[in-house]
């Protein structure tokens, strides 16, 4: 019996090997390059350079602005959408949800091109690259905000909300004191899935901002194009660190909501 159990466990070895070789090892290499100079000696100069380079600082600032604006708009649109779909008992809610999520399955470069053509039709293109980029980011990432919010809101314990009404709270108070706090896991999950990608998805800013604004992803791509591995690695290491801290703080390594969001439809 024991020998047989081991044989099933062995099936995981190729996957484990793959993860070590192509997920863990590349990250170790990136951290190594981030902390060495072009001669291979230990150095923190790459990080000093990032924080003293006006282009890099501007990219960090632009990325943060784009990410904060996009996340806020996604939340402001996505929360009411998810709330209505999950809690209003509308007849067509399931079908409508599908319509909100469908764009996720369409190639996003094609969607960005469609949006670009639309902007050029209504005369918005080349006017305000920050605005068009943020609209594009919202367009791309809205489903990733709606889905976790919808999942959380539709699983909400109704008796808590009823109890709140029974105890005399009105609708607004009930929402602020019961529904909203209970839906925080969905909010956090949604923010996680929108904020980080928005800082780095340079395809959107390049197509819709017409290359007039540089976000962190574009900066890394520039380093890559010029084979400036050490600087690219240093910037990636910073992003990696931010991601690890953020994930650790929100307990993301334990829950699998991130992965399930994309798979929820299938």
């Amino acid at each position: 019996m024991r020998a047989l159990k081991i044989s099933r466990k062995h099936l995981g070895y190729p996957y484990a090997l793959f993860l070590i070789l192509f997920v863990l090892l590349p990250l170790i290499i990136i951290v190594y390059y981030a902390f060495t100079d072009s001669d291979g000696h230990f150095s923190i100069l790459n990080f000093v350079n990032i924080f003293s380079d006006i282009t890099a600082l501007a990219a960090i600032l632009t990325s943060l602005s784009v990410a904060i604006l996009t996340t806020a708009v996604c939340l402001l649109i996505g929360y009411p959408v998810a709330y209505i779909l999950a809690r209003s008992r509308l007849k067509f809610a399931p079908t409508l949800l599908i319509l909100f999520i469908t764009p996720m399955w369409i190639n996003f470069v094609l969607r960005m091109n469609a949006l670009k053509e639309f902007f050029s039709l209504v005369g918005l293109l080349d006017k305000n690259p920050l605005l068009t980029t943020v609209i594009g980011m919202v367009y791309d990432f809205l489903p990733f905000m709606i889905l976790p919010l919808y999942t959380t809101l539709s699983k909400l314990n109704n008796s808590m909300i009823e109890a709140s009404y029974d105890l005399g709270a009105n609708k607004v108070t009930t929402f602020l004191k019961v529904t909203l706090p209970l839906s925080m896991p969905g909010v956090i999950s949604g923010i996680t899935m929108v904020f980080m990608p928005t800082m780095t998805n340079y395809v959107v800013s390049e197509i819709l901002g017409r290359g007039q604004i540089t976000i962190l992803g574009k900066l890394i791509e520039n380093y890559f194009m010029h084979s400036n591995w050490n600087m690219g690695a240093a910037l990636s290491t910073l992003l990696l660190a931010v991601m690890l801290i953020f994930t650790w703080a929100t307990g993301g390594f334990n829950d699998q909501q991130n992965g399930n969001a994309r798979g929820a439809l299938l």
Binding site: I30, T200, Y202, L216, N258
Partner: peptide, 12 residues
Amino acid sequence: LGNIPIINAEIV
């Protein structure tokens, strides 16, 4: 380990 590519910024 498997969660890293899901959570990590794609550019990284």
